Simulated scan of single mutants.
Amino acid sequence: MIARSTFSNGIVLCCRSDDDDSLLAVKCIDIDECPTSSLVLLQHEVALTRTISHENIHTYSSVWLSKSRLCMSSLFMDYGSCADIISSHFKHGLPEKIMALILYEILTALSYLRSVNLIHRGVRCSHILVSKNGEIKLSGHRNMIELSRDGIPVKKVHDFPKHDSSMLPWLSPEILQQDMQGYCTKSDIYSLGITACELANGYAPFTDMPSTQMLLEKLNGTIPFMLDETTVAPLIEDTSPSANADTEKFKSEMIEAAKSRKFSTAMHQLVTDCLERDPDMRMDADQLLKHPVFRQIKGLSKCQILQPVFEKMDPISKKASARVFQEQEEMMDELNRMSMCDVEWDFQE
Score class of each variant (00 low, 15 high):
M144T: 15
H92C: 14
V154F: 06
S115Q: 09
L94N: 01
R114P: 09
L138S: 07
I85P: 05
N143I: 03
Y112N: 03
A100T: 14
K91V: 11
S139I: 02
H89P: 01
H127Y: 02
M144S: 14
E96F: 04
L103T: 10
P153M: 14
A109E: 00
I145P: 00
C125Y: 10
I119H: 06
S131M: 05
R114V: 11
G80E: 04
A83N: 03
L118Y: 06
A109F: 01
T108V: 01
L147S: 08
L110F: 01
P153F: 13
G122A: 08
I119P: 06
G140Y: 03
Y79C: 07
F90V: 10
R114C: 14
V130R: 06
V116D: 09
N133E: 15
N143W: 01
L118A: 02
S139Q: 04
N117I: 02
L118C: 09
I86C: 01
I106A: 08
K156N: 13
S126M: 10
S88L: 11
P153N: 14
Y112W: 05
F90S: 12
S115W: 09
L118H: 03
G151I: 06
L147R: 07
I102T: 06
I98S: 12
C82K: 02
S131P: 07
H127D: 10
S139K: 03
P153Q: 13
L118Q: 07
I128T: 05
K137V: 06
Y79Q: 08
N117P: 04
I85G: 07
V130G: 02
M144F: 00
S74E: 12
G93V: 10
I145S: 14
P95G: 04
I85N: 05
D78E: 14
S131D: 08
R114D: 15
I102R: 00
I145V: 15
S88Q: 13
E135T: 12
N133A: 13
H89E: 15
N117Q: 13
I102W: 00
G122C: 00
L118G: 00
T108H: 09
S139M: 05
P153I: 14
I136K: 05
C82W: 04
A109K: 02
S73D: 04
V123R: 01
R124Y: 07
V116G: 09
G140I: 07
L129A: 07
L118S: 01
K155L: 15
I98H: 05
S131C: 06
S115G: 08
N143H: 07
